[in-house]
């Protein structure tokens, strides 16, 4: 199944998605983060929170775009959700395919491991001791995933585990399913 999914996603990326210059994108996101740091006086916990809120705003809108473009139906399991997110979602919007790993036994938690992060090209965290310990530079991605999954009735907790910008070996995001929002499922679905 995954081969078909991957080719489908490639086809969408090639033909039905408008593309922009990656440096413009990286510089725009970079100036957003650095401006946030300046506005919030380098209170990196607050910056992380604001990035997540921005991400949620983006996510609730992005999910409609994703559904309209791919015509995907409801996933039958959380595992399938993970596969679709990494192979189709990230491919369409960022042209990267993170690895899905670290499935827990009950299938309610997994990690996405990124080998490249277009948001953080050429970025070095500022040298004031706090940033390296507290700032998750790409936290907007966590917000996007959380907001988008919330709109399809999945309550998920998304957070960073490690980040190359902070000196770790790899960039890893953990997604943990809290529950299905059964009462919000539109009538007609099971």
């Amino acid at each position: 199944m995954s081969k078909a999914v991957r080719t489908a996603a490639d086809e969408i990326w090639k033909n039905r998605v408008e593309k922009i210059n990656v440096e413009l994108f990286t510089l725009t996101y970079g100036s957003v983060v650095s401006q946030l740091c300046r506005d919030l006086n380098n209170n990196y916990c607050e910056v992380n929170k604001q990035l997540e809120i921005m991400g949620e705003n983006i996510g609730v809108r992005l999910i409609e775009d994703f559904l309209a473009r791919t015509g995907a139906g409801r996933c039958n399991s959380f595992k399938e959700t993970g596969e679709i997110i990494s192979k189709v979602g990230f491919k369409i919007f960022l042209n990267i395919v993170p690895q899905v790993t670290n499935w827990t036994d009950n299938g309610k938690q997994f990690s996405l491991v990124f080998d490249e992060n277009p948001l953080a090209e050429f970025v070095e965290l500022p040298d004031d001791g706090k940033a390296v310990k507290e700032l998750w530079y790409s936290n907007v991605l966590c917000g996007v995933l959380k907001g988008a999954l919330q709109m399809v009735q999945l309550d998920v907790d998304v957070s960073f585990v490690s980040d190359v910008l902070r000196g770790h070996d790899q960039t890893e995001i953990k997604l943990r399913l809290i529950r299905y929002l059964k009462d919000e499922i539109p009538a007609g679905e099971d």
Binding site: L27, G30, S34, E121, V123, P126
Partner: peptide
């Protein structure tokens, strides 16, 4: 140029990176 692309670096800042 690569240093300039770092969003946390402004022009005329001292370059302190060990890299």
């Amino acid at each position: 140029l690569k240093t300039l692309l770092n969003p946390f670096y402004s022009v005329n800042d001292p370059i302190k990176s060990t890299m």
